[in-house]
Amino acid sequence: MEMNRWLIRLLTVLLVGGLLYIPSVSHAAGKPHGKDKEKTAYIDVAVATLWTAPGILRPVDAPSASNPVDIWQWKNDMSYEQQVQLSDDGMLETQALYGNKVHILEEKGDWVKVAVAGQPSPGDELGYTGWMPASQLVYNNKFDKKAEKPFVMVTSPTAFMYQTPSFRHKDVELSFNTKLPYLGETKHAYRVLKPDGKHAWIKKNDAAGYKSKQAIPAPTGEDLVATGKQFLGLHYLWAGMSGFGFDCSGFTFTMYQSHGITIPRDSSVQAKHGQPVDFAEMKPGDLLFFAHDQGKGNVHHVAMYAGNGMMIHSPNSKKDVEIIPVKTKGYIEELSGIRRYLPDHK
């Protein structure tokens, strides 16, 4: 039965010229392996939200599960209680950005379980996992072949793609840290490849071009803090991983990844890696971890040291990204450790 369904979709691919949407695949072992095209895909929306189970969306969540998505509307429409429910009920896992590669693990109706490449997780070697609508994924041979080649990365908090280099017709609004294959450039714009195989343009003022991920300049701690300051005032979003909203570890993860350094996705795991640092030896860019039971329990929060006794973080559903003293009441009592991820103590 699965083979018949696969053949039908393969014929569809040939008819429409190579554009492949998520195929029905069976994974007896529970995880895909290798680079089988039937088992990988790319995010086709500005930000894809991964859920802990399929079909648990509330009516207010509809803008996050469509194609295209409207993350601003989703955040604006949610009440504080609805925002808190996302974390208290354990509804979300993480998010993935436009063009991000995912491995397909399972299919259930209109939903697929995926592992996000580039988001390390101790639970799955392929990446952080979660459920998302299949309609938000696409596979295209041309994009796949160029995905690891020179790329353009969005450096503004959010930035529009445009259909022409004259910037007259807006396309998708992209998040910070979105990476797309480089196709060319004009004086003021980069030409990029979209996951569906089409091309678009991004203003050079909103992005940077690199020959490879290894070509991203090694940052200093001050660089990381300066990048984080772009998001001051951005409201928190549980599981958020984008310029539309971050959770605490999504914020620290993204600041590092945008500078070419990949750290674990969750604060509890971030707290176990890197180099331990004494409080008196903190430098900008170091990560501070906070735990229940006066710092002796489970880690529940992470912030980045900003220098001069201050830290920058995305705290909770009541607040926005902010800079506050490390010794702020309610935080300093729960400080459980400090970790450094920058090489050579930069």
Score class of each variant (00 low, 15 high):
1 M>W: 13
2 E>T: 09
4 N>L: 12
5 R>E: 15
13 V>T: 06
13 V>G: 01
14 L>N: 09
15 L>A: 11
19 L>V: 07
29 A>R: 15
29 A>D: 14
33 H>E: 15
34 G>K: 11
35 K>W: 09
36 D>C: 10
41 A>C: 07
42 Y>C: 05
42 Y>H: 05
43 I>M: 09
44 D>S: 14
45 V>R: 08
50 L>P: 01
55 G>V: 05
57 L>A: 15
59 P>H: 12
62 A>C: 02
71 I>A: 01
74 W>Y: 10
83 Q>P: 08
83 Q>A: 14
86 L>E: 07
97 L>M: 05
98 Y>L: 03
99 G>E: 03
102 V>S: 11
103 H>D: 13
104 I>A: 10
105 L>F: 07
107 E>M: 11
121 S>Y: 05
129 T>L: 04
131 W>G: 03
137 L>F: 04
138 V>Q: 03
140 N>S: 12
143 F>P: 00
151 F>K: 10
154 V>L: 07
154 V>P: 04
155 T>A: 07
155 T>R: 13
159 A>S: 13
162 Y>N: 10
163 Q>A: 15
164 T>M: 03
169 H>L: 09
172 V>Q: 12
179 K>Y: 00
179 K>T: 11
181 P>R: 06
185 E>R: 05
186 T>L: 07
189 A>P: 00
193 L>C: 01
195 P>H: 01
198 K>G: 14
199 H>A: 09
203 K>Q: 08
204 K>G: 06
206 D>C: 02
208 A>V: 06
211 K>A: 12
214 Q>K: 15
214 Q>P: 00
216 I>P: 05
219 P>K: 02
219 P>D: 00
232 L>T: 04
234 L>S: 06
237 L>R: 13
243 G>D: 01
244 F>P: 01
244 F>M: 10
251 F>E: 00
258 S>Y: 00
259 H>E: 00
259 H>N: 08
260 G>D: 02
261 I>K: 14
262 T>P: 04
264 P>E: 01
269 V>P: 03
274 G>M: 04
278 D>P: 02
281 E>W: 05
286 D>G: 10
290 F>E: 05
290 F>Q: 02
293 D>F: 10
295 G>K: 07
297 G>L: 11
298 N>A: 15
298 N>L: 15
302 V>S: 10
309 G>R: 08
311 M>H: 01
311 M>S: 07
312 I>K: 06
315 P>G: 04
320 D>S: 15
326 V>W: 00
329 K>A: 15
330 G>E: 06
344 D>T: 07
346 K>D: 03
